[in-house]
């Protein structure tokens, strides 16, 4: 099967089923996550709670930290880039990350376009609020989706549950 084809990307996402993906900022945290049984780790510069607390611009994960994390664990490593910032995604792909997360947690780099993910061999993950957004991301070539709100250091469940119910119900109709 051809490397980086849509089928391969979907297969990679299938391997995460039933598992937990944990945000980590250092190689030590990644090891803790792996030892705890995480199926994957998400490498990022600052965790969302700190991004919110610190303010300012949040950028892609540092290549050096990504490399250190890759060297310290054997589970898949994901890393975040800004929405629409295809150059960041290219750098992450060149580092060999297993998934690129085009993430709303970071400061968006483009207000009109998400990354054309068909141009990449690396698979992507991304948040979505509703069916329309999910389908737009899939149309751009993104095989794995996650409901939003869970990722934003808020810890409030009702909004998340409601949105997820809405998303899943509509996925169910397809």
């Amino acid at each position: 099967m051809e490397k980086g084809s849509f089928e391969v990307k979907v297969g990679l996402a299938e391997m995460l089923k039933g598992g937990v993906i944990m945000d980590v900022t250092t190689a030590e945290q990644a090891k803790i996550a792996e030892d705890a049984g995480a199926v994957s780790v998400m490498a990022l510069e600052r965790i969302p709670a700190d991004i919110r607390a610190d303010g300012g611009i949040a950028r892609m994960s540092s290549p050096q930290v990504v490399k250190e994390i890759q060297g310290n664990v054997s589970i898949p490593v994901m890393a975040k880039c800004r929405i629409g910032h295809f150059a960041e995604a290219q750098v992450l792909e060149s580092l060999g990350v297993d998934f690129v997360d085009e993430s709303e947690v970071l400061t968006p780099a483009d207000e009109h376009n998400h990354i054309d993910k068909h141009a990449f061999k690396a698979p992507f993950v991304c948040g979505c609020r509703d069916l329309g957004e999910a389908l737009r991301r899939i149309g751009e070539g993104r095989p794995q989706l996650c409901g939003r709100r869970y990722r934003h250091a808020c810890g409030r469940v009702p909004d998340d549950a409601a949105r997820r119910r809405k998303c899943f119900r509509r996925f169910g109709h397809l």
Binding site: L16, V20, I21, M22, D23, A49, C146, A153
Partner: peptide
């Protein structure tokens, strides 16, 4: 119906 869970902070 989630298939996996992301844990942030």
């Amino acid at each position: 119906g989630a298939e996996s869970v992301f844990v942030g902070s």
